[in-house]
Amino acid sequence: MLPVQGRKSKLNESEIVRVEHLKKYFPVEKGFLERLLTRTRKFVKAVDDVSFSVLKGEVFTLAGESGCGKSTTGKLIVRLMPPTSGKIYFNQTDITRLQREQLRTIRPKLQIIFQDPYASLNPRMKIGQAVGHPLEIHGLAKGAEEKQRVNEILQRVGLTPPEQFTNLYPYQISGGQRQRVAMARSLILDPEFIVADEPVSMIDVSLRTTIIDLMLDLRRDLDLTYLFITHDLAIAKYISDRIAIMYLGKIVEMGEKHEVFSNPLHPYTQALMSAIPVPNPERKRTAIELKGEVPSAIDIPRGCRFNPRCPYVEARCKVEPELMAVKPGHLVACYRIEN
């Protein structure tokens, strides 16, 4: 068993994004009296030492329950907020501390799509304007050329004929169409890497599959790489190549999709999988019962952060386990795999 997180390795050609020991702590605001009486500062440890890399052309999924740090990780990678510590590499370049102008040059290559297409589109901007806006901001095209690029990209995301949509406002189209517009807007800059943060969870069930299939088609046609963020493991299983399960700011298990789903080894992954509803009335449910609920990210349990809820907790869990390889590519942060 070789500990992986501490290992220093060279940056790999096939890696498009790599994060090392990424941390994001948010300070907790204290009341006036508390500020006078106590000296200790408290932090929400949203992301607490996360390392992974995303390979060119794959769909890498971060999955976990709300509060596990998956969205924060996505936002850190596209540099929407600065990390507390750790490193972010994009195409072999360290982008952790890039500022303003330098950041602007890489932004077109790193895009993000948000969960709520109702909130991520400006209600006063017509679809055509909203999709073309990034081109203006980056000074890439305007006027007739901008219009043509907008039409092309709208067609790409299945909003056809594009002329029918460019003059509409967001309220005039459906949720599924809005998410397509959001995708068009991120694609128009010809990105290489897209963080998709729960892109289908607010869309009607019958339309989800079309959006996911569109994402997969676009990946093939435009050579994209996705970091897919979701709480829905069934969707994760459908879309991903590799998956990482997060719990309280840390990755507890990571590997090839088939490996993780057919052979989940971390007790948390096992519990998560047993809780997923399956569309089959004949199925016998064998849910793994977990004690209590996810603790607060302010007071993270000592040792393994899952130990207060773990059905297999033992003495050595008082020291936090590192991610260890069970077999090449399948990493688990649990001592039980040593047995």
């Binding site: 069930v205 019958s206 599959t209 079309t210 299939d213 493991l233 069934a234 299983k237 459908y238 399956v278």
Partner: peptide, 16 residues
């Protein structure tokens, strides 16, 4: 169109 976690390989088809 809904993914089923118990199936090894699944082809989802959307409702148009």
């Amino acid at each position: 169109s809904i993914p089923n976690i118990e199936l090894a390989e699944q082809k989802l088809t959307a409702i148009g």
